[in-house]
């Protein structure tokens, strides 16, 4: 599986491009994290890969074929997608929610194979107990697993996730990230995830793409990309990067925080 972007540009019609010439070559099962400040075009980038958006310029090739050569259904069988959040206007049970992910494979009726695939994936992700619960009754961590399950029953070769660890407590952040890493190892899936958590990205990614002003600022292993200089340049934030168990670990600094002065009252927070 190979995804090649060449000079990819995108703008929403306003004249100033969100993506301004992205060139990337991603291949083979691995975990790739896309990092960068808010509004830098991370979501737009992954939406251009699976035809949610149509690029305004450049080319996007999936397995050697331009994305225009795929129907939406064909694309959905190759590339799974886990959105940042999902609508719960008309909540379904978890089972039926995950079943929606079978649409790219489904005929007019739901087949036994569809049902079995759903049951297997629920079991695999350890959320079989939630099968008959309604989606809107779930916690953020449970929802994230359900959305991941929906992406996996698409049986894709690539799965793209938009901030899968945001809104999750630390235990669930690690749990989801570990699951994604396992998927790349045991199922041979290429995992592309957008992240705001530099340390999660550093700990679990094989490669990191750091974006800045609609362009790729730096690509490489976490050690190569996550440097104090790069973080200062892209985020405008001072940091210290140390090595913990062979992974870079980013400690954020804010030297101005203490200069904002003392409180004029004595704050109270007891139990």
């Amino acid at each position: 599986m190979r995804i090649e972007l060449d000079g990819l540009t995108f703008d929403y019609g306003s004249g100033n491009p969100v993506l301004d010439g992205i060139t990337l070559d991603m291949a083979e099962p691995q975990v790739i994290s896309i990092l960068g400040p808010n509004g830098v075009g991370k979501s737009t980038l992954i939406h251009c890969i699976n035809k949610i958006l149509k690029p305004t310029g450049g080319t996007v090739m999936v397995d050697g074929i331009g994305v225009d050569g795929y129907t939406l259904k064909e694309m959905a069988r190759k590339v799974g997608y886990v959105p940042y959040s999902s609508s719960d206007t008309f909540p379904l049970t978890v089972f039926d929610t995950v079943l929606l992910g079978r649409h790219p494979h489904a005929g007019w009726r739901t087949s036994d194979e569809d049902l079995e695939t759903v049951a297997d994936v629920l079991d695999r992700l350890g959320i079989q107990d939630l099968a008959m619960r309604y989606f809107d009754e779930l916690s953020a961590g449970q929802r994230q697993r359900v959305m991941l399950a929906r992406g996996l029953v698409q049986k894709p070769r690539v799965i793209m996730l938009d901030e899968p660890t945001s809104n999750l407590d630390i235990r669930h952040q690690l749990g989801i990230s570990r699951t994604l890493k396992e998927l790349s190892r045991t199922d041979g899936i290429m995992v592309i995830m957008i992240s705001h958590d530099l340390n999660i990205a550093a700990r679990y990614s094989d490669h990191v793409v750091l974006m800045h002003e609609g362009r790729v600022f730096s690509v490489g292993t976490p050690e190569e990309v996550l440097t104090e200089d790069n973080i200062r340049e892209v985020y405008g934030v001072e940091s210290r990067v140390i090595d913990v168990d062979g992974h870079p670990y980013v400690i954020l600094r804010d030297d101005d925080a203490d200069s904002s002065g003392d409180l004029s009252v004595e704050p109270v927070c007891n139990r």
């Binding site: 939406h47 035809k51 949610i52 939406l72 799974g80 997608y81 959105p83 609508s87 929606l100 649409h103």
Partner: peptide, 22 residues
């Protein structure tokens, strides 16, 4: 006959596209 698709339609349009439905 469309009821499966209607379920997909109830999602965000972008989600629906990602699942292969215009």
């Amino acid at each position: 006959a469309l009821s499966n698709r209607l379920n997909v339609m109830s999602l965000d349009d972008r989600d629906a596209r990602a699942l292969g439905l215009d």
